[in-house]
């Protein structure tokens, strides 16, 4: 078991937090192409649909599953690249004019570190997101949920290899999920 009170652990945690905040900043500054560069070629980007299920059935039935059926997002880097390309056409009217977006990331925890905090090449990091979207004049959406990211060392930085977004909604209360999470 990895010790969690070492300097190496805190240094790694700080490095990962900085990475997540930098990544959020790229999105909020609408640097979409630069953001895409942070995604691994074999990225999995997954946001399940949440369902109202009977007590005791949550593990089995609450969330739609990656690789099966329909979720809000269950896609790869190519598709996210298309989403960026679409925004950059300037005629994707759901994002034209562009929304104003702020991504808040908090509750950052290292869930898995491999092989060790001293020379980590892979981490699984849990966090919370609060994404504020305001578009045109009065349209405002707040998306809140949990995120589990698998990051892979890429020189001095990291690549996102897997992102799971657990949005705390059943019926989606926004008309669109036209922003990137």
């Amino acid at each position: 078991m990895t010790r969690r009170n070492t300097l190496a652990w805190f240094a790694l945690k700080q490095e990962i937090e900085d990475f997540l905040y930098m990544e959020a900043d790229l999105l909020d500054q609408r640097m979409f192409r630069e953001w895409l560069d942070l995604l691994a070629e074999d990225l999995v980007y997954f946001m399940p649909i949440r369902r109202n299920v009977k007590f005791g059935q949550h593990a089995e039935k609450e969330n739609t599953r990656q690789g099966e059926g329909i979720s809000w997002f269950d896609e790869d880097k190519w598709t996210l690249g298309k989403r960026v390309e679409q925004i950059l056409t300037g005629v994707h009217y759901a994002e034209e004019p562009l929304s104003r977006v702020t991504h808040m990331v908090s509750n950052v925890r290292l869930l898995e570190v491999s092989p060790s905090p001293e020379d980590a090449t892979g981490v699984v990091v849990g966090s919370r997101f609060l994404v504020y979207q305001n578009r045109v004049e009065y349209e405002t959406n707040i998306f809140v949920g949990r995120r589990i990211d698998t990051l892979r060392r890429n020189g001095d930085s990291w690549l996102i290899a897997r992102r799971e977004l657990i949005l705390e909604q059943n019926v989606l209360l926004a008309k669109n999920l036209s922003i990137l999470f």
């Binding site: 946001m47 690789g67 059926g69 329909i70 979720s71 809000w72 997002f73 269950d74 896609e75 598709t79 298309k82 989403r83 679409q86 994707h92 009217y93 759901a94 994002e95 045109v136 349209e139 989606l172 926004a174 008309k175 669109n176 999920l177 036209s178």
Partner: peptide
């Protein structure tokens, strides 16, 4: 089924790249 479901998700509904623009039209 896998190719279809992936296409459906990127085309349709609130996360669908095609239908998002419909929703924008209908709202305004």
């Amino acid at each position: 089924k896998d190719v279809l479901r992936r296409f459906y998700m990127r085309y349709s509904g609130p996360a669908g790249m095609t239908e998002q623009d419909d929703m924008e039209n209908w709202l305004y």
